[in-house]
Each structure stands twice: as C-alpha cells, then as structure tokens.
Write a protein that binds this DNA or RNA. Structure first.
Lengths: 219, 219
DNA sequence: CCGATTATTGACCTTCTGGTCAATATCCCT
DNA sequence: AGGGATATTGACCAGAAGGTCAATAATCGG
C-alpha cells in the first residue's frame, strides 16, 4: 500500500455495475428494503442485506436515503397506498341486494388475504413496529381500519334500509368491527402459522353463513 | 491505574448489591427479559437493558443464562403456561343452557383481553417473532389456537345437541374459528392502537348478539 | 468530443452490544 | 468461627452494523 493511500484512508477505485437513473434505482432499493424490514423487523434488518437484495453496494443506499430510519419511513410510504379503493367503488356502484353485496365484499376480502404478498408484508410491519412508529399506527387507523369499518357500516345500513337485515344491525355500535374481525384474525393466523393456519376457504363460508343468519330480519 | 491492574485487564472489585438465592433472582431476570423482549422484539432487546430493568449488573445475567437466545427461550417458556384451563374447567362443569355458556365464555375472553398484561406481552412476542422462532408458532398453535377452537366446537356441539343452535352450527368446519375471531382481532387492535382501538365493550355486546342470532335454531 | 454532473463502489471509521472474566462480598455448613 | 461455595460486580474484548468518503466511471449537455 502506498503512503498516500494509507494517509487518505480508502481509495475506492472500482467498477460500478450499471448506472441507473434514480427513478429506476429508487424503487429497487425500496422493494429490497420492504422485503428485508418485513422479514426481520426494523431492528433486525441490516442495511448490508438491503444492499445485497438490491444488488448494489451499501454505500449507494446512502446516496438515496440519509439513514436507516428514513429508509424505513420511505418503505412504508411506498407500500401504503389506499387499500380499499376497490371495495369502496364496488360499494357505491352496487345495485343488487345487501346480502349479495355482503357476500361480494367478504369474497373480496378473503381473496386479498390469499394474494397480495406486498400487502401482507405491510401488515406484518404494522403489527411489528406500530408501537415504535406512531405513523404506522396512524396509517392503519386511517387507511385500513376506519375505511373497512365505514364499508361495513354502509352495508349494514343498506341492509336495514331495505328490510333485509334486522334493525339492530345498524344500532349496535360494535357490530361493524365484529363483522370484519374474522378477516383480521385470518390474516394474523396466516402470518403466524402459514400453512398450519385455519383454512381460509372454510372460514369464508362459515363467516358468510353466520352473518347472513345473524343479521337476517326476524320473520 | 497500577501496572498490575493494567496488565490483568479488569480487576472487578465492587460491592454486590444484595445476594439473592437463584430461585428469587431467576424470576426477576425473566420478568425483566419478558418486558424488554415484548417491548423491543428479540433483535431490538438489549441485554444491558434487561439488567437495568432487573436492577443488576449485565454480567449476572450470564451467570443464569448462557446467551441472549437462551434467555429468550426461557422467557417464553416462563410466560407460556396454559391459558385456557379456566375456560376448559368452566366448560366441563357447566349445567345451564348453551346460550348461557357461550355468553359466559365470551365475557371471560374479553375480560382476559382487558387485563393480563403479561399475556399481552406474550401475544406481542408471538406475533413479532413467530416466523423466526418455530417454538413460538407451535406453542400458539397447540396451547392457544387449538384449545380455543376445541372449546368453541364443544359449545357448538352442545348447543346443537340441546336444540338451541341450528344443526349447521356443528357442520360448518370454519365456524369455530369465525366465532373466536373477534377476540383475536380485538387484541390485535388493542395492541396496535391502544386507546384508539375499537371499543371492546361494544364489540363484546355485538359479538354475543350476532352469535346468538346467527346460531339460533330456525323457528 | 470535452467538461460538468452524478451514480456507484469498497474500504474505513465509530459506536454499540453480546459475551468474558478475575476479583470479591456474602452465604452456608460444620 | 472458619472455609468452601457461589452470587455479584464492572471493566474489558471482539465482532458486527450503521454511516462516511475519496475515487471513479457512466451519462449528458453543449
């Protein structure tokens, strides 16, 4: 090693792999970060591992994000687009019976549970880090829970208005939460137990059956 | 510093705080560890913080546990005693109607959700670390989910046998999971959102109401 | 085609943290 | 009381991980 090299510390002559415009590199890093954070949690995630996943040098991450904390923030924001636009569109444009609407929405919810790997990662992050990252809890409250509750309440009101559901369905304040709970529990079980979780299809069938029977107007 | 002290490295003359028998110190350390792990997760937990919480020196932890991993394992085992003995006893000795039994068990479940700080810590640990610690997932499956499902199925069978519930209640394979789901979702929300979570009392009322209506035998 | 810009690298620095250990104060047994 | 056993301490170590940076090679504008 030359004296100059020793004095200046690192010398850093290397061959860059491939130069990409930021708008292509950024999402690459974000995707790698989301994976890593979801798999290991914030504290367990390694910047070096993010770099490896993205196929770049660690230093490059800091060219785009000033710190691990900011990268985490950005990762969350990146996969935190509104989740319920589908459901809300379906709700507002619906023509048929409330029972049919309920069945549709439940089918939609369980389908989302099964697919959407990225959404599962976000959900895991929310469960894991919400306590330490208030923005995560706020995001869940505003963008997921509140919107889901709103949808459930709208269905209940529609069913009561049309006489399909008994009036109590719109009067019980906790009912909306109870109605959507099986989907939440299902995703938690899926997350913890994977293949060993209770069967989602069976739950979906029983869920719909119980709701239709439990909400039905008394004869 | 003397030459001898410098040569030997640390010399370690200090005043021990209070000497306790292992059977008293051990649970102290475990309690501190459970707190720390539950609050920060495995990777985020610091051995020094566990020691601080327990009011001892870090080195003492290693007198009782060989490593962080083993301490984690022991912490889990320590707070992982059977959770459903209450409910199962109540179930086997019950005399009244299935409806009453169902109401009792639901009340019991929601009461547990509200109290039992240590159990919440365990639940958080399960959610957070299950993927990396297979024992946690197994414990949840065996000691919590399976037993809860067993209780739910027993109640359903009893209600169908007595004619209180419609026969489908025992025939739908996913129903037991759906029945207990609101309690799971409730605890998740409590965990993520704390005070901002949906009201547990309202959920409890709506939950029972929905079940009684949805399970009831058709007239 | 040349110079300014910047995407990219890998070595390095610093701090943090799991883990070790010799010394020591306390307890228990005889 | 005395002596062996052990609970307890704090300083220390090695390695890992977040973050820094000078050098460099692509890219782009003129």
């Amino acid at each position: 090693m030359t004296e100059a090299a020793a004095a200046t510390g690192g010398d850093g002559r290397q061959e860059p792999r491939a130069r990409l415009p930021p708008e292509a590199r950024m999402p690459q890093i974000l995707a790698a970060a989301i994976e890593e954070f979801a798999e290991r949690g914030y504290a367990g995630a390694r910047m070096a591992a993010v770099a490896r996943r993205a196929g770049i040098a660690k230093g490059l991450i800091y060219h785009y994000f000033p710190s691990k904390a900011e990268l985490f923030q950005a990762s969350i924001t990146a996969c935190a687009r509104p989740v319920f636009e589908d459901a809300e569109r379906r709700l507002s444009g619906f023509e048929g019976s409330a029972r049919q609407l309920l069945a549709d929405l439940i089918a939609l919810a369980y389908a989302r549970l099964r697919e959407e790997k990225q959404e599962r990662a976000l959900f895991r992050l929310i469960l894991t880090e919400a306590e330490r990252v208030p923005e995560l809890a706020e995001f869940y409250r505003r963008e997921i829970l509140d919107r889901a509750l709103g949808i459930a309440r709208a269905v209940l009101r529609a069913g009561v208005a049309s006489g399909e559901f008994r009036p109590a369905a719109a009067a019980l304040p906790g009912l909306a939460a109870v109605i959507m709970a099986p989907a939440v529990a299902g995703s938690v079980w899926q997350m913890i137990l994977g293949e060993a979780a209770p069967d989602l299809a069976a739950m979906q069938a029983a869920h719909l059956d119980l709701l239709l029977a439990g909400l039905g107007a008394a004869p």
